[in-house]
Computed example of a mutant assay.
Amino acid sequence: MFFDFDGVLVESNAIKVEAFERLYAGYGPSILARVMDYIDGKEGISRVEKIRHAHEAFLGIHLTEAELGLLAERYSRTVEDAVATCPWVTGARDFLEAHAHRLPLFVVTGTPEGEIRRIAERRAMTGYFRELRGSPPRKPPIVRELLVRHGLAAERAVFIGDALFDHETAHETGLRFIGRVPPGRPSPFPAGTETAADLSDLAERLARPPQTAHA
């Protein structure tokens, strides 16, 4: 099983959105609105890609690698403590506790790898997973690498994500996909995608054949 992290295991998406608001608020309301519209639905894509695009597309600034690194570090300082202490997604911790000993579990996230490992350590999550992987690279090559290295068959694996990019990753790599869509939120996924409000019935879902309609 492959899990995205933010919005799938922990309720941290709002923290990440607020961090982008702080990062771009100084450029004025018009630029901020365009940036926030751009990042909407881009969960699962690394902050580095989003910052690079936002600066180029909306500010006309082509960042050097050093400048990009400084902005990404500023963003990281804003979010890391908050993500390390925010609530779990309902059912996530119970599922990990019950199944980590018998299923190979992985985290594949757009968060930088060093940061996700620190956060997982602070949340006492590390022991649940065979590997915790972050950016770079993007998610599809990470999933392919993990399938090969751990001798796993894609058709027997599932990706749990909350973003369209997670759905695309599962499609590209041949994995079953279950989308997490919180109550009251519109689904970002194509019609017919299997979805769940949280992870409270994940074990039951996995025991069924893949669904062809929204949960």
Rank of each mutant, 00 (worst) to 15 (best):
R102L: 01
R102T: 07
R102N: 04
L103N: 03
L103T: 02
L103D: 03
P104W: 00
P104R: 01
L105P: 05
L105A: 08
F106L: 05
F106D: 04
V107I: 15
V107M: 10
V108H: 13
V108M: 14
V108T: 15
V108D: 14
V108Y: 13
T109L: 07
T109S: 15
G110I: 04
G110P: 02
G110S: 06
T111R: 07
T111N: 14
T111P: 10
T111E: 13
P112V: 06
P112D: 11
P112S: 08
P112T: 07
E113Q: 15
G114M: 12
G114T: 14
G114Y: 13
E115H: 06
E115C: 04
I116E: 12
I116F: 11
I116L: 13
R117Y: 06
R117H: 12
R117V: 08
R117M: 07
R118L: 14
R118I: 14
I119A: 11
I119F: 10
I119Q: 09
A120T: 11
A120K: 03
E121M: 11
R122V: 08
R122K: 15
R122W: 10
R123M: 12
R123L: 08
A124G: 14
A124L: 15
A124Q: 15
A124V: 14
A124T: 15
M125V: 12
M125Y: 10
M125D: 15
M125H: 09
T126Q: 09
T126A: 11
T126R: 09
G127L: 09
G127Y: 11
G127P: 09
G127N: 12
G127K: 06
Y128I: 08
Y128P: 08
Y128H: 14
Y128A: 08
F129R: 03
F129V: 06
F129G: 06
R130L: 07
R130S: 04
E131Q: 12
E131N: 06
E131H: 11
L132M: 14
L132A: 05
L132V: 13
R133S: 11
R133K: 14
R133W: 09
G134Q: 04
G134L: 05
P136R: 02
P136E: 01
P136Y: 01
P136I: 02
P137H: 03
P137Q: 00
R138I: 05
K139H: 12
K139N: 12
K139R: 11
P140R: 02
I142Q: 02
V143I: 13
V143E: 04
R144C: 06
R144L: 07
R144E: 12
E145Q: 03
E145I: 01
E145P: 02
L146D: 03
L146M: 02
L146K: 01
L146I: 11
L147A: 03
L147T: 01
V148L: 09
V148S: 10
V148E: 14
V148P: 00
V148D: 13
V148K: 07
V148F: 06
R149K: 07
H150E: 05
H150N: 02
H150S: 01
H150P: 00
G151Q: 01
G151D: 04
G151P: 01
L152T: 01
L152W: 03
A153M: 03
A154C: 08
A154F: 07
A154M: 07
E155T: 10
E155N: 12
E155A: 15
E155D: 15
R156G: 05
R156I: 00
A157M: 11
V158D: 09
V158Y: 10
F159D: 11
F159E: 10
F159N: 08
I160S: 03
I160C: 04
I160H: 02
I160L: 13
G161I: 09
